[in-house]
Write a protein that binds this DNA or RNA. Sequence first.
DNA 1: GATGAATGAGCTTTCATTCAT
DNA 2: AATGAATGAAAGCTCATTCAT
Lengths: 202, 202, 202, 202
Amino acid sequence: MKVVVLARRLKAERKENIISAALSLFSKEGFHATTIPDIAEKVGMSVGNFYNYFSSKETLAKELILYISTYLGDRIKAINEGPLTTEEKIAAIVTMYFKIAEERPEMIEYFLRIYLSNREVFRDGCEGIICVSSFVTEMMIFFDDGVSSGDLRDQDFFSAFGLFMGYLGGMVFLFGEKILPEPLNTYEAPISDNIYNALRVI
Amino acid sequence: MKVVVLARRLKAERKENIISAALSLFSKEGFHATTIPDIAEKVGMSVGNFYNYFSSKETLAKELILYISTYLGDRIKAINEGPLTTEEKIAAIVTMYFKIAEERPEMIEYFLRIYLSNREVFRDGCEGIICVSSFVTEMMIFFDDGVSSGDLRDQDFFSAFGLFMGYLGGMVFLFGEKILPEPLNTYEAPISDNIYNALRVI
Amino acid sequence: MKVVVLARRLKAERKENIISAALSLFSKEGFHATTIPDIAEKVGMSVGNFYNYFSSKETLAKELILYISTYLGDRIKAINEGPLTTEEKIAAIVTMYFKIAEERPEMIEYFLRIYLSNREVFRDGCEGIICVSSFVTEMMIFFDDGVSSGDLRDQDFFSAFGLFMGYLGGMVFLFGEKILPEPLNTYEAPISDNIYNALRVI
Amino acid sequence: MKVVVLARRLKAERKENIISAALSLFSKEGFHATTIPDIAEKVGMSVGNFYNYFSSKETLAKELILYISTYLGDRIKAINEGPLTTEEKIAAIVTMYFKIAEERPEMIEYFLRIYLSNREVFRDGCEGIICVSSFVTEMMIFFDDGVSSGDLRDQDFFSAFGLFMGYLGGMVFLFGEKILPEPLNTYEAPISDNIYNALRVI
DNA sequence: GATGAATGAGCTTTCATTCAT
DNA sequence: AATGAATGAAAGCTCATTCAT
């Protein structure tokens, strides 16, 4: 019995390794420029064995976006459930997002460059927001809370969501392209202000 | 003499056809999933002949982004040079952008999905904002004018640019994914408001 | 009548231009790496028109080797018919060959690199020595004369021919590869000596 | 453990098969006229798998010349280190060379037709004599020994090398073109004599 | 004779996936 | 579970040659 448990843990660990290697390679090199041999080599695993963990390159790509969505969703959830005001929550989300963009850029880059851009890959099984719902749901909760507490105007969710996420994504993109003259965190305050100004009750 | 002129016109026309076909295919299928044979077939041209017009797939991709940047830049320029207030200009840009997104979605989609995401492709020759400068420059002018006229807060350009363009891009993305419950133009008013609120002098 | 003559002369001239351009390109870039558009451009002629002068790339290649063989044959003939001793003739041929190798390297290079190495190209129509007979014939005469005059041993022609031409070709090859430490003409005397020693009556 | 060894042996064997097939095809058809599918088919291997053994057609070509140079160098070395006089060594080298030209003509043909003539292919990594140094070095030793023993005149190495190798190459070329009226070995004696006469102390 | 756009077969190379071991 | 050689379809691109003008 114990052996089975150990084996299962080992398998989960190996899978984590693949996810981590793939995330890094996909976001750095692009989905098509990254090959399965590349990933296998980075994990220290044979090509054939890779297919014991993921049935195809596309499956892997879909699991990755799920992984990221959960990761981001968890962090937003923590903020949502904390004691902050709406204005502070906005700042907290911006700070969290930019922190990830600097410390684990693969995650944001994967989101922006792989998920948003390779429609063919995510066509089957990730329609709509299926694969990013953990994350989107928490953003919905954030807005609802903000509206309930009288801080934010009651407007269409997607108008607000597009503003928030489009803005942050855009900034990270500019950062990634080395177009921004200052480090990302310099922009945290003005951006949080802009978002709050855009959404708050007037 | 006439013959030469006609031939030249024909060649320019053929080039336009390729641009149009490629724009559509790239934005619908992705850069890597679109093949030269696909493009050639859509234009009704042999693969070999395609290379009489564009020296490589990458060259084509770069000409495309230049084409789009100029197209958008021209429209923003017209708005900039019109008699509108800053608030009206914002609405005009949003309307224009969404109109293009509905009438010629390939243009915006290309921008969002191909240009922003296939870094490798645009690495040489489109560094920084080189290939989108027509468009970015006009956005700069818009902001400067808004600040000069006392309507907009004087803040870092990229903070404002990221808000504006990240927002619009995000909305078009949601639209393209069929996530938005309403037609795009429904959102024009609230979005324009959000942007103006975010940027205006308080 | 006059017009016809002029036209014919013009055509011959154009053909010479093609031959000259092709010789240069083939020997510098190789047969396969040289394209018909390359040649046409160098001549300042359209691709289509090229085919009014030569029916195919292979035909051109075969005419070139004929041209070179005649060129070399004529020069050897002049030496053969001059008043020199056999030893002097050897030196004269070596000098002539190296002079061409330095002044019009395309000719020797074409011979060594294109003709000798692209069997497929010359398979039909240049079997055996058909396309280089002007040159080989003169070398035969040189040997016969040398034997008749009692200077050279009477041996199989090809034993002698291979020595003479293999030697000179080898030296030009080493020269072309920049392997030779000295300029080509430095070697004229020792090489002539070696050849004479190899062939003379003992 | 045994399995690994066997696999390694199998892989080496497959590589030998490719070398052998490529040598034959290249020398018979020419470098450019031989395609990777041709080679793969001759080996009984898929095109894709070929690239598990050689990273490109050029790499293969370079390994081939190395292989041949070593093969020839080894044989000359054996002669150099044997008990023969200089005159006998010359005859031995000629005999050996012609024997290879008859039994494994691909080797000599590859040398003459592919290596010497496709400069572009060998440009990177085979500059000068890099890829044929095993062979050239042994020829240097032969000459040095001959001079040391007082049999050969002390002259520039390349003058002598060009004579020897240009001569042999020329004869094999004539043989390959079916120009020679007699079988190759008929010429061994007169050619050895000619070479010895050309180089010996007078 | 002259033009050059057009053709299309063919090239080298890549890579997701399979499968015998 | 693990290996990595093997497959083969498909990609981007080239180029000798043709042909409408």
